[in-house]
């Protein structure tokens, strides 16, 4: 019986993740791009990405474009996704979470002045939540 419950728990969790990767959730999140053109979506699952080992994604940003990162977390318990933008030397540019004020922002806008490879790191504040979220990258001229 224990095994069945464990298997059920795993599948319930996977089902939650599948929901997160669903087109409907992605489309809803992309709707927040507000005029920016969609580039990519990045699904982040708690447990797979931690503060010590966050989910990593790199992309070549071009000078003259403004890049928008839209953050959608699906946490029923209000768990939040933390997304950090780093420059080509992996030096932090900004995060959607302000550690001093403990405030989360749902999006970041970066008017790029220096072309190069940028890095986007992400993880859930609550690593054990069984949660998932999406970070969507878009751009405007």
């Amino acid at each position: 019986m224990k095994h069945f419950l464990a298997a059920l728990a795993i599948c319930m969790c996977s089902y939650g993740f599948a929901q997160c990767e669903s087109d409907a959730f992605m489309d809803k999140c992309a709707g927040n791009l507000a005029g920016a053109l969609f580039i990519k979506s990045l699904v982040i699952k708690s447990g797979e990405a931690t503060e010590a080992k966050p989910n990593n994604f790199s992309y070549v940003f071009s000078k003259g474009a403004t890049y928008n990162i839209i953050i959608c977390d699906q946490g029923a318990g209000g768990e939040k996704l933390i997304v950090t933008l780093l420059d080509r030397n992996k030096k932090e540019i900004a995060s959607n979470y302000n550690k001093k004020t403990k405030k989360f922002y749902p999006s970041l806008a970066y008017p790029c002045g220096a072309t190069g490879v940028y890095y986007i790191e992400s993880y859930f504040a609550n690593e054990k939540s069984g949660n998932c979220g999406v970070a969507i990258l878009g751009f405007t001229k």
Binding site: I93, L108, Y110, P111, G113, A114
Partner: peptide, 21 residues
């Protein structure tokens, strides 16, 4: 060094870093 400001609830990064080809 980059700076940030809040504009209509969105975090906007102000960065004067430049590249030249």
């Amino acid at each position: 060094e980059p700076e940030t400001k809040e504009v209509n609830g969105q975090l906007v990064i102000v960065n004067e870093s430049k590249s030249k080809i």
